[in-house]
Every structure is written in structure tokens, then in C-alpha cells.
């Protein structure tokens, strides 16, 4: 559908919040928690924090939570009974106030989870989210959306995109049918766009590299061990970058509870040494430099090649969360400038 542009007052937005809640939807939005801002369930617009550049974690937690039950099992005398998840009871969720980069990230996740055999649980969760994006009026030195095809006011991935125009006014762009449904209850309160200048409200993010350049160098860089070693000497091999990343989709499966228990899916990261360790003791990626290479290759080479979508939206979270300041945009620039 064509994007429909209107505007909405903050008080109408507040009304919309209570309508969503009374329709039985959960609202996941950035919230101030101690000294950082992160996604949490909220009960009103007043609880939402709107002015941070980014949250610590990404909204992927709505479709790919940290730990989720895949099925329950019960084994009696060698007979195993399985109980699958009842997908119908998964909560309808409005993700409110996420940034355009985060909204774009759902496409990358979907590309992985739906790659060959669609992942039923993931798809059901994805089906039940409504994405209400909020354009960025500020960016920081970690942001690089414009280098990976996005932008501070980009609509892709959102069902609705809001832009804070100041003075309690928001520009509201309805991007999908889901979005139209989500604002239906206040449609009388939407004013036609009074020529609001969205551009003027947006952060400036100067592109730092081009995807074309990256993809032309990366494959040839694969075997350049000294390049990757130099790039990753200070990387400590934790999971922080992958866990806060909106597109990282790796998981581990754990059965808990003995004869009667649950099969759980939980996050995993290619940054860990154990990630590729074989039962034999052999590890095809014994060095952190190889694991760092994997991180970049997966996002900028393997995913575009196999799933026709980038594995990075330039949100910069990995870099903000990194305990040793591995700054993704710098590393990508180094790749772009490398002479393999």
C-alpha cells in the first residue's frame, strides 16, 4: 500500500496506548531502568523514554526471546510424549518507539528463521507484532544506518512510523495494513499532514562506507589471517555484541528436566570459543580472530549471498555494549580500505 501521511497529537497517542491495552495487546517500549534505557512492557506513554539514541537490547526479544520453550516432553517407560506450543496464546505485541534500524532488522531475522523450513514459533511471534517506529532526531558515533541502506527516517520494517515534530505533535506515517488497523480506533483524531517537514527533524548520519565496496573486498580478505588478527586483538570473545544485536539469530537448544521437562531455545554467539567446538575436541575456529571474521563475514557476506539481505542494520548496539570498544563502523571502514 502507499504510505499514508497524517499527524497525531500526543494526547491522541496516549489514547491509542490505552486502546491497545484494552484490546489485550502488550506494549513493549524503551523505558528508563536505572541508568540505562531498555525495552520493557509499559502501561502508558508516560512510561516510555523517547530521547535516547538507542536502547541497550534490541526489540528482537519480542520475536526471539532470550529463553523460550519450544516444546514440553514426558517420557514414561520409553514412550515419549511431546506437547507443542499453543501458538494461539502467544501475546499480541505492539513494539513502540523502536528506531528505524531496529524495524528494518526484522527482515534479517525472518530471512534466517524462514530460510529453508519456516520456524513456526518465530513466525507466529512475528505475525503478532505491530511495529511502531520512531524516527531518530539524534545519532551518535556508533550509528551507521545510512551505510547499510537505512536512514534515521526510513520506513522499511515499520507498520507505522512516527516522527516527533515538537510541541506534542507527531507526524504519523501508515505504512502497512497492520499499521492502519492499529490506529483505526483513533482515526478520527488523525489530522491530514499539514505539510510537516520531516527531514528537518531527522538526525544527520554521514555514510561511512558502501556495501558494494565491502562485498567486493570481503571474500578476498577471508584468508588474510594477519588482517583479522590485527582487527581483533583486543576482542575478548564474549557474547555481548551478539546478544544485543537486533539481527543476530544464533541459538542453542537445551533440554531441561530429565524424563519430564522442556526443550528450550536460548541465545548463542559465534564469539564464544565453544560455539564451534566439536565433540572430538577439534575446533575449526580456535582463534578469536577467526571468530571475529565470522561475525563480519556472516553479516556482510554470507547473509547477502544466501538470503539476499544484510545481517546488519547499523544500530551500533554491539559497539556500545562491547567491553573493549570494538566499534563496528571503524572495523567496516577498515575492511573497505583493506587491499587484499
Amino acid at each position: 500500500m502507499a504510505i499514508e501521511t497524517t499527524s497525531i497529537k500526543r494526547e491522541t497517542l496516549e489514547k491509542l496506548f490505552s486502546n491497545w491495552l484494552s484490546e489485550g495487546k502488550r506494549i513493549l517500549a524503551p523505558k528508563k531502568l536505572g541508568d540505562h534505557v531498555d525495552f520493557a512492557l509499559v502501561g502508558s506513554l508516560a512510561e516510555v523514554s523517547l530521547d535516547q539514541v538507542q536502547t541497550v537490547q534490541s526489540p528482537k526479544i519480542a520475536v526471539f526471546p532470550r529463553v523460550e520453550e519450544l516444546l514440553a516432553f514426558q517420557s514414561t517407560d520409553g514412550n515419549v510424549q511431546l506437547r507443542e506450543r499453543d501458538l494461539a496464546v502467544l501475546p499480541e505485541t505492539v513494539i513502540f518507539g523502536l528506531r528505524p534500524c531496529d524495524a528494518a532488522a526484522f527482515a534479517s531475522l525472518k530471512a534466517i528463521f524462514d530460510w529453508d523450513t519456516p520456524d513456526k514459533l518465530f513466525s507466529a511471534r512475528l505475525e503478532k507484532i505491530t511495529v511502531v517506529g520512531l524516527s531518530c532526531s539524534r545519532a551518535d558515533e556508533y550509528c551507521f544506518c545510512t551505510s547499510v541502506g537505512g536512514g534515521p527516517g526510513a520506513a522499511a520494517g515499520s507498520d507505522i512510523l512516527l516522527t516527533d515534530m515538537g510541541r506534542e505533535d507527531f507526524l504519523l506515517e501508515i505504512i502497512s495494513e497492520k499499521g492502519r488497523q492499529a490506529v483505526r480506533s483513533v482515526s478520527a483524531g488523525l489530522q491530514p499532514d499539514a505539510a510537516m517537514d520531516k527531514e528537518s527533524r531527522l538526525a544527520r548520519v554521514t555514510p561511512a562506507f558502501t556495501v558494494e565496496k565491502i562485498s567486493s573486498v570481503l571474500a578476498a580478505l577471508f584468508d588474510d589471517a594477519s588482517f583479522w588478527e590485527k582487527q581483533s586483538l583486543r576482542c575478548l570473545g564474549c557474547g555481548a555484541c551478539a546478544y544485543v544485536c537486533p539481527t543476530c539469530a544464533c541459538f542453542d537448544i537445551q533440554d531441561e528436566g530429565g524424563a519430564s521437562g522442556k526443550r528450550l531455545r536460548c541465545w548463542d554467539s559465534c564469539g564464544f570459543g565453544l560455539f564451534t567446538l566439536h565433540t572430538s575436541g577439534h575446533n575449526p575456529r580456535p582463534l578469536q580472530s577467526q571468530r571475529w571474521r565470522q561475525r563480519l563475514m556472516h553479516k556482510f557476506s554470507y547473509m547477502p549471498e544466501r538470503q539476499s539481505v544484510l545481517g546488519c542494520v547499523g544500530c551500533g548496539r554491539c559497539s556500545r555494549a562491547c567491553p573493549v570498544d570494538m566499534n563496528m563502523v571503524e572495523h567496516m571502514r577498515a575492511v573497505a580500505e583493506a587491499k587484499p
Binding site: L33, L236, C238, G239, A240, Y243, S269, A321, P323
Partner: peptide
């Protein structure tokens, strides 16, 4: 309840 088990504490 917020711990991600990212083991950044351990790595650092």
C-alpha cells in the same frame, strides 16, 4: 533476571 548470560563479565 536481566542477566543475558553474555559472559562479558567473565571475558573482561
Amino acid at each position: 533476571s536481566r542477566c543475558l548470560k553474555c559472559y562479558a563479565c567473565r571475558a573482561a
